[in-house]
Amino acid sequence: MKILSLKDVSVSFGEKTVLSNVSFEIKAGEIAAVIGPNGSGKSTLFKAILGLLPFSGSIKINGRGIADELHEIGYVPQYFDFDRTMPITVGELLSFTRRRTAHKESKEICREVRIDQLEDKLIGTLSGGQLQRVLIAQALLKKPKLLLLDEPAAGIDIEGAKAFYELIGHLNREHNLTVMIISHEINTVYEFADQVICLNRNMVCFGPPHTTLDAQTIEKLYGTKMTAHLH
C-alpha cells in the first residue's frame, strides 16, 4: 500500500528552481533514504512534503492531501537551535508536543528510544545523540505512520550513529513505521534502506540501493568517482 506519492513536484524561490519534477512512491513499512550533495534540495523536499513550502505538482499521503494527513507525520528537524541556558526538561519538551498515546504507552516509547532516565534532565545539557533520541520520541508520541528524519546522524560520533540507525531499524520493524531519512552516508544507505532517492535538484535515481546506486549514478550525483564499500 502506497503511503506517500509525489508526482512532478517542483519548488522555486522566485526565479530559482531548487527542486524540479520529482516523482516517486513509497510503500508503507519501507525505509527510504534521500541522498545528494549539499544544496541538492533534500531538506526542501521534506518541507514540501510537510506543506511548509509552496510547490507545483502533487503530493499525496495515504492518498489524501497534506493538510488532511499532517497528524500522521512525525518529523525530526535538521537543526534544533535554542538557548541552552533555558531550563527546559526533557519531560517538558515532550509535553509541549501533541500526543496520541496514553501515559503507559508514552513511557514505553521513552524506554524504547532509551530516554526513560532523562525525563528530569535539562535539554541544554544533553549530548547530540541524546537530544536526537528525545526529538525522535516527540515525533513518535504522535503515533505517526510516516517518520521524516532530516540528517539525524549529523554531528554524532560513529558509534552513536550506528546505534541510531539500529534504533530506526527497530522502530521500522516493530511499529511498521515508514521512514524517510536524509543521509550523507552511502554505506549506511546500502545496508539500511529499502529505497533510495538521489537528488541533485532533479531526481537522478530512485529504487532499491543495491540495484540503483552504481558508480555511474554516484558520479552523476556528486560529480566525483566514489564507490560504496559494504562492511
Partner: peptide, 18 residues
Amino acid sequence: YKRLALMILNEDLAYVNG
C-alpha cells in the same frame, strides 16, 4: 505556554504538531 514554547524552540516542529 506549551504551544508558545514549542513554536519558539522550532517553528517547523510546532507546525507539524498542528
